[in-house]
């Protein structure tokens, strides 16, 4: 029972990160129907932006307040990752609208390879580790020497995720940008006829997705304290799995899927085998797509001629 509770906490933390990345996949898929394969690498890039910003703040400017550092890193990472994502969309995806079916996907795969290797060249191939920022833990249960703990950093991750999702929900549901986005999702041509600037809306979708990925990237950096140029691939695929599991195109689905994937992964590692945890996630992806392509909360896809 204690182990179960501990894994539940760990799983929800991991799941929050996956959920934040998954929103980027699901939003882009909803609006232009493409799998943004490079999104996992955008997440990795955001971690590196967070890393350099963190070093700038602590080693050069000498700021010691952890929360101030975290807040600034978060905002800076969101802004710059949004900029990176905007540039990617502009250069690699926008010219391909109206090209053949596989073109955006292939371009995104190229972009993913380009990003991870660019970071490898620019920042070096070795793991970059930072000292742990938040080390305090709350002991929830202490029984027979086994402690169930909730680390402050886990608490921060869940709280930041919840706040970001709240803001994001407000943007999508209540603002004119959100309305434009939903309109484009339903019918891009009709939305354009009604005066929605479709290109701008799509760009903003990419920026918002990247900003949420940057939140995940910063939280990832804080939680694990280490980042590598190849760290985008596996979390990217897992977050895509989360988006698919929740029902691609559905925003609550992405969060739900993220939490589920995080929980499945931690429980699988704890109770079965840690070596096969990635196999478990990848199998869920395959099984969901084969047997339940509409996911948990998604709408079944209707094929139109």
């Amino acid at each position: 029972m204690d182990i179960f509770l501990q894994q539940l906490i760990n799983g929800l933390t991991l799941g929050s990160i996956y959920g934040l990345i998954a929103i980027g996949y699901t939003m882009v898929f909803g609006i232009i129907g493409m799998v943004n394969f490079a999104h996992g690498d955008v997440f990795m890039v955001s971690s590196f932006i967070g890393l350099t910003c963190f070093l700038l703040l602590t080693t050069v400017l000498g700021i010691t307040s952890v929360f101030l550092v975290l807040a600034i890193v978060l905002v800076v990472a969101m802004i710059f990752t949004g900029l990176v994502s905007w540039t990617i969309e502009r250069l690699a995806y926008r010219p391909l609208r109206g090209s053949f079916r596989l073109a955006p996907m292939i371009s995104a795969i190229g972009m993913s390879i380009l990003l991870s290797n660019f970071v490898q060249v620019a920042q070096g191939p070795r793991n970059k580790s930072i000292p742990p920022l938040v080390t305090d833990v709350i002991v929830l249960i202490d029984r027979d020497g086994y402690q169930v703990t909730l680390a402050y950093k886990q608490l921060i991750i869940m709280a930041v995720t919840a706040v970001c999702l709240g803001i994001f929900w407000f943007v999508v549901q209540k603002t004119s940008l959100g309305r434009a986005q939903r309109a484009c999702e339903q019918d891009r041509k009709m939305a354009a006829l009604l005066g929605v600037n479709v290109d701008r809306t799509i760009s903003l979708t990419f920026i918002i997705g990247a900003a949420l990925a940057a939140v995940a990237g910063t939280m990832y950096l804080m939680n694990y304290g280490v980042v590598n140029f190849s760290d985008g691939f596996v979390p990217g695929v897992k977050a895509f799995t989360a988006a698919v599991l929740g029902g691609i195109g559905s925003l609550p689905g992405a969060v739900l899927g993220g939490l589920l994937i995080g929980l499945i992964e931690t429980f699988w590692s704890a109770y079965f085998s840690i070596e096969y945890k990635d196999v478990a996630a990848f199998s869920i992806l395959a099984i969901t797509l084969i047997f339940m392509p509409q996911g948990l909360l998604g709408r079944p896809e209707v094929e139109k001629v």
């Binding site: 799998v35 079916r101 596989l102 695929v237 895509f240 698919v244 196999v279 797509l289 084969i290 896809e301």
Partner: peptide, 28 residues
């Protein structure tokens, strides 16, 4: 057999997942 009913980009991701699963099984 199970995956070929899927649309193009889903198929791409599932084949990617299979490729990784085979590699992970070879390692483990």
């Amino acid at each position: 057999f199970p995956v070929l009913r899927l649309r193009g980009d889903y198929l791409a991701i599932v084949t990617l997942a299979f490729g990784e699963i085979i590699r992970l099984v070879l390692i483990n």
